Computed example of a mutant assay.
Amino acid sequence: MGTYSQMTPPILFLIFNRPDLVEISFREIRKAKPSQLFVAADGPRAIKEGEAELCEQARRIVDHVDWECEIHTLFRDENLGCRKAVSSAISWFFDHVEDGIILEDDCVPEHSFFRFCGDMLARYRNDERVMCVTGDNFQDGIARGRASYYFSIYNHCWGWATWRRAWNHFDHDLKNWERLRETRFLQKLMPRKSADYWTRAFDSVLTNKVDSWAYIWTFSCWSQNGVTATPNQNLVSNIGFDTRATHTADATSASSRLQSHQIAFPLSHPSRVRRNRKADRYVEKNSFGIQLPDSYSDRVQRKLKKLVSGTKT
């Protein structure tokens, strides 16, 4: 089995019109010194005055590559929008490499993120159960198991990595969702309220009400019964919470204050590839705001506490 431990995997850097954020994120890429760097940028919107110059400023970041590196660029002249621009850039990336890291301009990784992704890409390269590696952890300090990471169905994309063999399943037009929507596909993965939430999310993309590639990628992973390797420490901070953002405009969000931490090496591996359902329920409730009913064990614990205190249930 190969390893990336002594080198950084290829990186796709997705940029647009925020040169200030590009510069901050690029500092961490420069420290990691990937031997292959792919930079993709959507084109400016004609209706946005001054955006063409901002896009040009962001693109000049490639001029600051000062280490031995093979550079590829995909700079669009016209604006494709979030869904098409990002997904087509990732497809372009995997036309050139077998696996790699994807970073957007507002995602700032802790340095150990790069090695974590490299180790995961090497370890699970041929394991089709694992569709994705994320650098994100939204468990608020709760460790899920004793290993360095666990498995989740949620493929958070604020700094992540995957393989060509996984991205080949990207369902661009959600054709499989049209087929699976009327089945119990989602109900088998999650509680009913969560299934209802994701049904609305996928429908909104299918009907073009939401311009999102990420929802499509999540569905694509689920359609293959795939899981995501998730670190027990958060490895990436998102600095893009402002009015310029497409999906993270709320600067008061708790996620905007999420700090990154170093993960220890060598990694401790889980004994088997199996999703952590408690972690997934926590994300559904606390990250997506889905009001889930108490679990049976929670209800039992609460009743026991009331009995001990002498109150009626």
Rank of each mutant, 00 (worst) to 15 (best):
H247T: 11
H72S: 11
N137G: 08
D66H: 06
C221H: 09
Y124S: 04
T199E: 14
R272N: 09
C132Y: 10
S204F: 10
L74H: 10
D242M: 03
A147M: 12
F75H: 13
S194R: 03
M190D: 03
Y282F: 15
S295Y: 08
S260Y: 04
C117V: 04
M7Y: 09
D140A: 12
A32M: 10
S87Y: 14
D250S: 07
L121S: 10
H269F: 14
A161M: 08
L37H: 09
R272W: 07
N238K: 01
S256N: 08
R274S: 15
S112T: 15
S260K: 11
P34Q: 07
R272Q: 13
R146E: 14
T243S: 15
T228R: 04
S295K: 10
T230P: 01
T228Q: 05
S194W: 06
D63N: 14
H269T: 02
I101T: 00
D127E: 15
K84Q: 13
A161L: 02
E98C: 07
N79W: 13
C117S: 05
N79K: 11
S237E: 10
I101P: 00
K175Y: 09
R299P: 01
F170E: 08
R125F: 03
Y149I: 02
T162G: 10
H261V: 00
P231D: 12
L12P: 01
C117T: 00
D280I: 02
T252P: 00
R30K: 15
E23M: 11
D127I: 03
F202M: 11
H156Q: 12
G118F: 01
G289K: 11
S295P: 03
H269Q: 06
Y215H: 12
S268I: 10
F114T: 07
P10C: 02
C157A: 14
N232R: 05
L14Q: 09
T162Q: 04
R144F: 00
I47H: 15
R18G: 06
L174R: 03
Q259R: 14
F75G: 13
F138R: 09
T248Y: 03
S268N: 05
P109T: 08
S25F: 02
F138D: 05
A264I: 04
E104N: 09
F93G: 01
Y154M: 06
D140S: 14
E23T: 08
G145K: 06
L206N: 12
A195L: 08
